[in-house]
């Protein structure tokens, strides 16, 4: 700041106070970008070719062809839906005990660490990696996909449940404890009313995620619409692929709208 007798100059103070850190950060970002682009082996010729072909490629998606592969699309979508529903139900059922154990204000330290461990591992690996292994173990088909989605659901739902329980109002919980309630009664009267509305919302959200994920576990053989989609790409039947994508988008949109209603109703 430059301060003279008559005029004082004001400049907006920068977000990061230390100039060394500030410039260092910019410098670091610049170096990173240079390195990243420098080491990226991009076949620009191929990409350019793709862009010129892009128009033709995109045109190949239109008009979407619902009719010629409708049977397999229908099978795939239905299978995806079964997988979505069963894996959400089973996943949430399994994640409740894990989530209770992973809430710091509820469980003992060893139990807490064990449950947090389960959550961390099941959250780390994307559903598709889990699906690869379940396909190897259980064979091709929706069962493997169902298992992969269930495990993913445990990680997601268990973690959020645990966090929600940790955030609950401790005084309400204390009040129920003070009347001499047993542990299960305490869960039922003090914890459940507090976390239930949010958890129902998250359950619906997870249903939504599981449906979207069910579209990709098929790529590695886990059943569902993904297999159909991959086949149509492999056969260059882009119009069928477009139809599949539109069905997926449509279902996701319907779910999103209805979940909004259900959430408002639960509140």
């Amino acid at each position: 700041m430059n301060q003279t007798a008559s005029t004082r100059i004001w400049k907006r103070p920068p977000f990061i106070k230390s100039p060394i850190l500030r410039w260092g950060l910019w410098f670091g970002v610049a170096i990173y970008l240079a390195l990243a682009f420098g080491t990226m082996e991009i076949d620009w010729a191929r990409a350019a070719e793709g862009v010129t072909r892009g128009k033709r490629f995109i045109m190949a998606f239109f008009p979407p062809d619902f009719s010629s592969r409708w049977d397999s699309i229908q099978d795939g979508i239905l299978e995806s839906m079964w997988m979505t529903i069963t894996s959400t139900v089973i996943g949430i059922m399994l994640s409740v005990p894990v989530g209770l154990g992973a809430a710091r204000n509820l469980s003992y330290r060893p139990v807490y660490l064990f449950c947090r461990g389960i959550l961390a591992v099941s959250r780390t690996f994307p559903e598709i990696i889990l699906a690869i292994f379940f396909v190897k173990l259980f064979g091709f088909g929706p069962f493997a996909g169902f298992l992969a989605l269930s495990v993913g659901t445990i990680g997601f739902y268990g973690k959020l449940l645990a966090e929600d329980i940790e955030d609950m109002d401790p005084v309400q919980a204390e009040a129920i404890k003070s009347v001499g309630a047993g542990w299960l009664q305490w869960l039922n009267y003090a914890v459940q009313p507090q976390v239930m509305p949010r958890m129902i919302g998250l359950g619906i959200y997870r249903l939504d995620i599981n449906f979207r994920e069910s579209a990709v576990v098929g790529i590695v053989g886990g059943g569902g619409i993904g297999a159909t989609l991959l086949t149509s790409f492999d056969r260059y039947e882009f119009d069928s692929a477009a139809a599949i994508l539109m069905v997926i988008i449509g279902i996701v949109m319907v779910m999103e709208y209805s979940s909004g209603y259900i959430r408002r109703w639960v509140q």
């Binding site: 990226m40 082996e41 991009i42 076949d43 191929r46 990409a47 070719e49 793709g50 862009v51 072909r53 892009g54 490629f57 598709i128 979207r212 994920e213 579209a215 990709v216 790529i219 989609l229 991959l230 790409f233 692929a241 994508l245 997926i248 988008i249 996701v252 949109m253 999103e256």
Partner: peptide, 25 residues
Amino acid sequence: IVSSRSINSLIWALMLVTLIGPGIL
């Protein structure tokens, strides 16, 4: 927003690989 969200990144990648070839891009 909805169309970007409903399609998994793996499916986006599947389409882009056919379009601009396999690779990081």
